[in-house]
């Protein structure tokens, strides 16, 4: 375009050349920089995308193998095959009972514990919080062998409620920590009013504090549920009967019980099992206002 511009314009451009040139040089450098950055990021995204693409494509492929390829033929057969009580419904239901029960237990206890920790001063508070934070760092995998031995002795092994109790308790330290941080953000003024009106502290918690911190409570609940839904080793160690296993463990059957692995069905099942996670995560980051806010919150 610049080539066909009029001589007059050309002359003016010549005069202001140094300033303009520097500005355009800077602008074009910015633009090339952005291009390069975009290109690098897109390549990394593609690498990250390959396994996800396999999941999506293989699930609707009638002849799926380990390659990422266009479905041939496109079919929902894989889904039809896995959507029955043995493969999908029962494990998903078991997962819901297990994770739902443990989440409820954990969140109720965490809210109760967070209230005094957030509202009162006490000399036990700091050591307690430090212990809680310390516990969040411990590798729970390491405790599983003694938990197993303990559960065998007290007859809790292979029971749903036993597993719920352990799942809920092991998630408690982090849930208390997170809930307390969210509760700290609720101003005291309204509670003081409720107190003067003679409300007890549990009433205040239920009527004043919880309604004000529902976004935080949603995040704690979803986060706790998600970490349990994806948890493999706790049910793997503590549950033995096949009809009690949640989806995170029953998925192993795709390999052991049949000689050849049907990758299409494996992909379809994985998709069904993962779908709630992606949805709940989207809800959670919406509540928090962007995913980077989640990073900040999780950091503590």
């Amino acid at each position: 375009m610049a080539v066909v511009s009029s001589p007059k314009l050309q002359a003016r451009r010549e005069r202001s050349r140094p300033v303009q040139e520097r500005a355009t040089a800077k602008r074009s450098r910015r633009r090339t920089e952005q291009l390069v950055v975009n290109a690098i990021l897109l390549v990394i995204t593609l690498v990250f995308l390959v396994p996800l693409a396999w999941l999506l494509l293989a699930s609707v492929n009638g002849t799926a193998d380990l390659r990422v390829r266009m479905p041939d033929p496109v079919t929902f057969d894989n889904f039809h095959r896995v959507l029955n009580s043995d493969i999908t419904y029962r494990p998903i239901l078991n997962g819901l009972i297990l994770c739902g029960g443990a989440t409820a237990l954990c969140v109720v206890c965490a809210v109760l514990a967070a209230y005094p920790l957030s509202r009162y001063e006490s000399r036990y508070k700091r050591p307690f919080l430090l212990t809680i934070l310390f516990t969040t760092g411990l590798p729970i995998t390491a405790v599983m062998v003694p938990v197993y031995a303990m559960y065998v002795q007290v007859n809790l092994i292979d029971t749903m409620y036993g597993t719920i109790l352990f799942l809920g308790s092991s998630a408690l330290p982090f849930a208390i920590w997170l809930t307390k941080n969210f509760m700290d953000g609720v101003p005291l003024v309204l509670e003081e009013a409720a107190w003067t009106d003679g409300a007890s502290s549990l009433q205040t918690l239920r009527r004043v504090v919880l309604p004000l911190m529902w976004p935080g409570l949603t995040v704690v609940t979803i986060f706790t549920f998600l970490s349990m839904w994806g948890n493999f080793f706790v049910p793997f160690f503590l549950l033995l009967s096949p009809d009690q296993l949640p989806a995170s463990v029953s998925i192993l059957n795709f390999f052991s019980s049949r000689g050849t692995v049907d990758y299409g069905q494996l992909a379809a099942f994985s998709l069904l099992y993962s779908a709630p996670v992606v949805v709940l995560y989207a809800v959670m980051s919406k509540v928090l206002g962007g995913s980077s806010a989640l990073g900040g919150a999780l950091k503590g």
């Binding site: 237990l105 109720v108 206890c109 965490a110 109760l112 514990a113 209230y115 005094p116 920790l117 009162y120 006490s122 036990y124 307690f128 516990t135 405790v143 003694p146 938990v147 303990m150 109790l165 352990f166 809920g168 308790s169 092991s170 408690l172 330290p173 208390i176 502290s201 549990l202």
Partner: peptide, 19 residues
Amino acid sequence: RGLPVVPSVVLMLLFLAGP
């Protein structure tokens, strides 16, 4: 005031500190 902390403490003692 510390009463509401009790359920959590009991659970954590039994299922985390215990193991």
